[in-house]
Amino acid sequence: MLTHEQLKAQALKNPAVRAEYERLQREEMPMLDAILKARHEAGLTQAQVAERMGTKAPAVARLEASLISGKHSPSLATLQKYAAALGKRVQVQLV
């Protein structure tokens, strides 16, 4: 049985997997880290954020997961609702 690290090392030998992994690390993970950090700092669970957003916990879980997978990009309006539930606001910058 492979450990997580062994499986990761094996998968990253594939150039396509490595390219996607590096893209996620560069583009997606900083946003996810910021979102999860803000939720943690607010001391809120996904269910509590969902209640404040007027939705259900699975929707918040999907939102957070979508930032990992890159398969679905949440709308700016959804991110603004999420941020407002945390007492924050979204700021978009082009660099």
Rank of each mutant, 00 (worst) to 15 (best):
M1V: 12
M1L: 10
L2D: 14
L2E: 14
T3S: 15
E5K: 12
E5W: 07
Q6K: 13
L7S: 14
L7A: 15
L7H: 12
K8H: 09
K8P: 01
K8R: 14
K8Y: 02
A9P: 12
A9K: 15
A9H: 13
A9D: 15
Q10N: 13
A11R: 15
L12M: 10
K13Q: 15
N14H: 13
N14T: 00
A16S: 09
V17L: 09
V17P: 08
R18P: 10
A19W: 04
Y21D: 14
Y21S: 15
E22I: 06
E22K: 12
E22T: 07
E22C: 08
R23S: 13
R23D: 09
R23Q: 10
L24H: 14
L24F: 12
Q25Y: 09
Q25M: 14
Q25E: 15
Q25P: 10
R26Q: 14
E27A: 06
E28D: 13
M29H: 10
M29L: 15
M31V: 14
L32A: 13
D33V: 03
D33E: 11
D33K: 12
D33Y: 05
A34K: 03
I35K: 02
A38R: 00
R39W: 06
R39G: 01
H40I: 06
H40Y: 06
E41V: 00
A42L: 03
A42V: 05
G43W: 02
L44M: 13
L44D: 05
T45P: 06
A47S: 09
A47M: 01
Q48M: 02
Q48D: 00
V49L: 05
A50R: 04
E51M: 07
E51L: 07
E51T: 04
R52I: 04
M53W: 08
G54K: 02
G54L: 02
T55V: 11
T55H: 02
K56F: 08
K56D: 08
K56T: 05
A57H: 01
A57R: 09
A57P: 07
P58G: 03
P58L: 02
V60E: 05
V60K: 00
V60H: 07
V60N: 04
A61G: 11
A61L: 07
A61Y: 07
L63G: 01
A65G: 12
L67C: 10
I68L: 13
I68V: 14
S69E: 12
G70M: 00
G70Q: 07
K71R: 12
H72Q: 11
H72F: 09
S73F: 01
S73K: 08
P74Y: 00
P74I: 03
S75H: 00
S75N: 01
T78K: 06
T78A: 06
L79I: 11
L79F: 05
Q80M: 09
Q80A: 02
Q80D: 09
K81S: 07
K81N: 10
Y82N: 02
A83M: 01
A83T: 00
A84S: 00
A85C: 00
A85R: 03
A85K: 00
L86M: 08
G87C: 03
K88E: 11
R89W: 01
R89P: 02
V90T: 06
V90S: 04
Q91R: 15
V92N: 10
Q93W: 01
L94Q: 05
V95P: 15
